[in-house]
Write a protein that binds this DNA or RNA. Structure first.
Lengths: 108, 108
DNA sequence: CGTGTAAGGAATTCTGACACG
DNA sequence: CGTGTAAGGAATTCTGACACG
């Protein structure tokens, strides 16, 4: 209620706390950012801030890494999943557009 | 899913971020703790950690303060609200007990 | 009472780099 | 490639205290 109720997405957690939460070292967390697996925000001074969603993402990355999956592969999988989500969304919009074309504009 | 999905209650936010989020100074935030209006956890070293629920609580406190309400009164209101919640819970349990006494133990 | 501030110290975080493998 | 570590600096946080009102 403060301003945005999506507690899961708000980037408010510092790297030290993320380290505690995930069991990863700060070095690892920064490295995964370098490999474009995670995208923290920055405070005015430059301190990284993560969301709970980021924390979960990091746990998944950690699991993959334990299985020996390289960061490059993890990134490829992420991109693929992203593409699938985008396509799905696009198909939905396309369908909506067709419906509107035939039956006219209507809310919802 | 990491371990506890209650993002709203997890105490993971440092005082600096809470200050940004609420607009309160760190001095004020610490003072409200001294007056028992807010109860952060502590990191191993002693750094305060707050939840989103705490942040919302602080915003409410800030509003009350702007209206001129003193911290003591705010605390009294909090305690009263807590008592009401407790009583409600107790009445519920009492009722459950009576039902069980008459109709025997049953789950739920 | 509620809040600002200067004080001193300890822990945090950041970046770039060297190391190993 | 993925991670550890020492390096140096800047920002963060903590406590206890003095100040004002």
């Amino acid at each position: 209620m403060t301003d945005n109720p999506s507690y899961k997405e708000r980037k408010v957690i510092t790297i030290g706390v993320v380290s505690e939460l995930t069991g990863l070292t700060e070095r690892q967390i920064r490295y995964y950012e370098e490999r474009k697996l995670i995208f923290p925000e920055r405070s005015p001074r430059g301190n990284r801030k993560y969301s709970f969603a980021d924390v979960e993402q990091l746990v998944e990355i950690a699991n993959k890494r334990e299985e020996g999956v390289q960061t490059y592969e993890i990134r490829q999988d992420m991109l693929k999943a992203q593409r699938l989500r985008d396509e799905k969304r696009n198909r939905k919009e396309l369908l909506r557009g067709e419906i509107n074309a035939r039956f006219g504009i209507q809310k919802n």
